[in-house]
Write a protein that binds this DNA or RNA. Structure first.
Lengths: 151, 151
DNA sequence: GTTGACTCCGTACTCGGGTACTGGGTCTAG
DNA sequence: CTAGACCCAGTACCCGAGTACGGAGTCAAC
């Protein structure tokens, strides 16, 4: 009855086999379960759990947080789940604010560039080289590598 | 005249000594320069360069990109610098959009939670467990570890 | 009865931006 | 002259979320 091998499970959830194993190592999915012969088989509950993980992740939860989320009880932990979501919203909002600051600083440089006559030295590089303020700590870990598309 | 040891340089720019060395390894700062006895000394130009790096970083450029930026010539590369800034703006904006999507999804869950009567199972966990759509690939690498504050 | 696709398990590597540690050498103030 | 603070060079390690690889076992189809 709807037994999936790890490969079929992974495919149904749109992830790679290695990812499933990785989640098992992280304790998000159980590595021990039903076996058919030598191979582990997975049921629909495990598929649902795997999908849960991916959905929560796409909402900005880290895998550690997903673990906490999975430990909550749908019946008795409403408060906690809501608090969790609210704090994640605050989190996301503060990241948005940081990015907006970056954007407007960059915008300012570009605008300034557009209002300078041709044979002058580049105002952008110039501004970067001699900014007025003491250099702020870097903020937006620029690498936000776009999500994996099950490559 | 105004010779700084690596420690003084680092302090003036608000970074750690190890960070300066790291930038040297990455080729953003030159590891060979004037020496006073056994110790390398740095001048104001190198301090300016180091500050440039941090400023560019705070605008969302990666260290690789900072390297490209440093290779531009203030006199002759205005076009390139502007194009660089514009593409970085596009980049930042797309990250903002992703985060806004996350926020509204989370917002939706919380709102739904507020409109549900007390003894029902948690609608947030429930939604996570049985969402309508196939799970999208994760987007916003949730870890946005808050920027280093020269610890 | 063999081919080819899949699974198991373990370890190691990736990326970006650093931090930490080790075992020296050197410089400077008291 | 010695203590303590600083520097040098190299290597190893951290985080988060996977990806890659290798050798061996297994399963289904032809």
């Amino acid at each position: 009855m709807n037994d999936l091998t790890i490969g079929a499970l992974a495919k149904s959830a749109g992830v790679g086999v290695e990812t499933v194993r990785y989640y098992q190592r992280r304790g998000l999915l159980s590595p021990n379960g039903a076996r058919k012969g030598a191979f582990r088989v997975y049921d629909n509950d495990e598929l649902a759990r795997l999908r849960f993980i991916r959905r929560a992740q796409s909402l900005g939860f880290s895998l550690d947080e997903v673990g906490d989320l999975l430990a909550l009880d749908e019946e008795t932990d409403r408060e906690r789940a809501r608090a969790f979501a609210l704090s994640k919203i605050a989190d996301v909002e503060s990241r948005i604010r940081q990015l907006e600051e970056m954007r407007s600083a960059l915008q300012g440089l570009v605008t300034c560039c557009e209002h300078t006559e041709a044979p002058a030295p580049c105002p952008i590089l110039h501004a970067l080289a001699n900014a007025a303020e003491p250099p702020p700590a870097p903020r937006g870990k620029a690498g936000a590598r776009s999500a994996r598309q099950t490559p």
